[in-house]
Simulated assay, not measured.
Amino acid sequence: MILHSVGREFRPWNEYAKQIRAELDRQSPWPLDVREHSVESARSGDSNPELPFVQYLGALYAERVPDLIVAVGAPAAAFVRRHRQQLFPKAPALFTANDQRRLQYSDIAQNDALVAVRHDFRFLFERFLRVSPSTKIVAVVNGNSPNELFWRNEIQKELRPLEGRVDIRWYDNLSFQDILKQTANLPPHSAIFWNTMVVDAAGVPYEGDRALTTLYATANAPIFTHDDSFFGKEILGGPMLSARALSKEAGSAAIRLLGGEKPDSIIRVEGNSCRYSTRRSARS
């Protein structure tokens, strides 16, 4: 069972889930029945819809408990931990595509495995500023879901040593349409850091590439990010987490768990990997 954090079409987690499935198909010596579900209550933090969802999962798997639970992203991992005893107390779980800060080693149960990430936002910003030393303003585009607000605070803490060197502007309290107005009229020597846009401050969800492609079409500054799931024509190169590398590790861990290996022997943390694009943006 693959459990998505907010929905099957939200980046970057959908890319991890897709590539994990591909790794399972490639590496598995057995035929697999892979089922996918989403913790959609993570968009708003409203816990009321969770009870019917828990009951649904309990009824769906009443006759046969999953051989493995793969929780993709921090909200999915938190859901599994909250309802583990009620749903699948003995089934092994693999937590992946979430940052080490969201799931500490002390939180890992004996039947849990972890293939996590470690984002270094200060390193990422400093590398960007080395490439573009004239940058004076960085506008951060981030959503308003509980997970995104958690990251607003974490990123802000990590970037405090850069205060005075660059003006970092936050827009998570705005609707995405208002964010677009702000980023279309940034002063010279500005850049945009794209974190995620799951839900904006008006409660509007943004699946797939819709928000990022719209931002790119209207913004007057180059865009950089932390995860190569977003990498494409919109994003400048830089040190990004490799979705493919992490998914390969997670897929291998899942096969090992299905083969009977003890979950608590599998703990791995991936950091930002250096990836650079040769494409130059006209918005520099």
Rank of each mutant, 00 (worst) to 15 (best):
L57M: 11
S229G: 15
I192V: 15
F128A: 07
F53T: 09
A17L: 12
R43S: 03
R169G: 05
Y276W: 13
Q86T: 15
V34T: 10
F150Q: 11
A217Y: 13
F125D: 11
Q177F: 06
Q85F: 03
P12F: 05
Q85E: 14
I2W: 00
P133S: 07
P29K: 01
P52C: 05
R169F: 10
K181Y: 03
H226P: 00
F10V: 03
A245P: 00
A250P: 01
L162N: 04
V115D: 00
Q104L: 11
F123R: 13
N98I: 10
N153Y: 05
L3F: 06
I155E: 07
P75T: 01
A91N: 03
D33G: 06
L246V: 15
A217W: 13
R84Q: 15
I137F: 10
A93P: 01
A254H: 04
H83D: 07
A191D: 03
E249N: 04
A219K: 09
Y105G: 14
P188S: 09
A245K: 12
S242W: 12
R81Q: 15
F224I: 03
E23A: 15
A221S: 14
D67F: 00
A62G: 04
D228E: 02
E270P: 00
W151Y: 14
L180M: 05
S229K: 02
S284G: 07
S28V: 10
L149W: 00
T183P: 02
S190P: 11
A211D: 05
P49G: 02
K181L: 09
S28Y: 00
E40L: 08
K181S: 12
A22M: 07
P75H: 08
A22R: 08
L32R: 02
S132N: 11
K18F: 11
D228V: 06
V140P: 10
R256N: 11
T135M: 04
S281C: 08
S277L: 05
Y171P: 01
R26W: 03
F128E: 12
K136V: 01
L24F: 01
P133C: 05
S277H: 03
N111P: 02
V80L: 08
D112Q: 12
H37K: 08
P146F: 06
H37E: 14
G164S: 07
P161R: 12
P29Q: 07
D99Q: 05
I2S: 00
R165M: 14
D120G: 02
S132L: 04
Y16L: 14
P187T: 02
A97C: 08
N220G: 09
H83G: 09
C274M: 07
F193I: 01
F230S: 04
L32Q: 05
K262P: 10
M240E: 05
V140Q: 10
M197P: 03
A202Q: 14
Q100R: 15
P29F: 01
L87Y: 02
P12Q: 05
D227T: 08
A113R: 02
A282I: 06
Q100Y: 13
N153D: 15
A254G: 06
D107C: 09
E261W: 02
D67L: 01
S44A: 06
R169W: 10
D167M: 08
I168T: 07
H189V: 00
L32H: 06
E249Q: 12
K248A: 15
A93T: 14
P146T: 11
